[in-house]
Design a protein around this nucleic acid. Sequence first.
DNA 1: TATATAATGTTATAATATAACGTTACAGAT
DNA 2: ATCTGTAACGTTATATTATAACATTATATA
Lengths: 153, 153
Amino acid sequence: MWERHSHRKCIKEALGRAEQICSKRKRKLTPIRKKVLELTWNSHKPIKAYDILAQLSSEDFIEKPPTVYRALEFLLENNLIHRIESQNAYIGCNLDHHGLDSKFFICDECNEVEELIEPKINKALTEASEKQGFIPNIVNVEIHGTCAQCAQQ
Amino acid sequence: MWERHSHRKCIKEALGRAEQICSKRKRKLTPIRKKVLELTWNSHKPIKAYDILAQLSSEDFIEKPPTVYRALEFLLENNLIHRIESQNAYIGCNLDHHGLDSKFFICDECNEVEELIEPKINKALTEASEKQGFIPNIVNVEIHGTCAQCAQQ
DNA sequence: TATATAATGTTATAATATAACGTTACAGAT
DNA sequence: ATCTGTAACGTTATATTATAACATTATATA
């Protein structure tokens, strides 16, 4: 899926967008937060909290779990990253979320994750909720399987 | 949602169904597995592995983590329970799954969980997958919000 | 009965995450 | 410019969730 894209540009865009969002919301994208965000963009694969920790340690950042979890919390709150629940891992987000919903294709072969926006899925979810009288707040959809790239091989 | 149902009957049905499924598949529903399954049915709220452990200890069962996790693994494999990923918790399942997909309404007020089967959601998910060339295997949908019961209050 | 496999027992430890409290940085009020 | 409150970060400790690895026991069936 991603093998030909310019990933450097990808990271740069993500960071630029993060700066914008934070300044709009008057939140600070501090060096630590920025670094953690960068690490979630190192690839299109989810990264684990303790792997982030290890990477920070190898640079001149402080290396205690709370540092990482606080940065992750901040980034999650601002929709700059998401948590892949089925993997206890985190991944950068570059989409505009209307609501608090996210949906992922997770390839079990190469472990790449692609986030998608698909109004038809949202519509089906909303309708099902209404049918139950359930008022949805946060929706998370994780679809595990094989990506197009890996399926070809 | 559930306040008026006969929960004893609910558990009994779940256990009966589990016996059937296991015998059909030639898998053994041993005392430990049965007990763990029962505990996931104690309420319609997800239960944590270490809470199961605590309950087992208070009876005459052995009380080590692997015991519980093995039982959970067996029950998961046979679709007798599901894992609520956003809570690291487990809940009994009484539905027939055609594929490896599950969808939950999770009430953030009372913590009750309702599993649903909704072909329209599956259709939307399948179509989105096809559009990407993604071959889905396991699908998990967790919808957090407020249930009808709690919304009324 | 022999034997292979499944299930369980047991010890230890890995992996993930948070509590609690102290210190520093910084924005806005005076 | 200083005061002051809040946000951010540092630090220690510990809680929570899960698995590895190997020993023992139970069970089915050849």
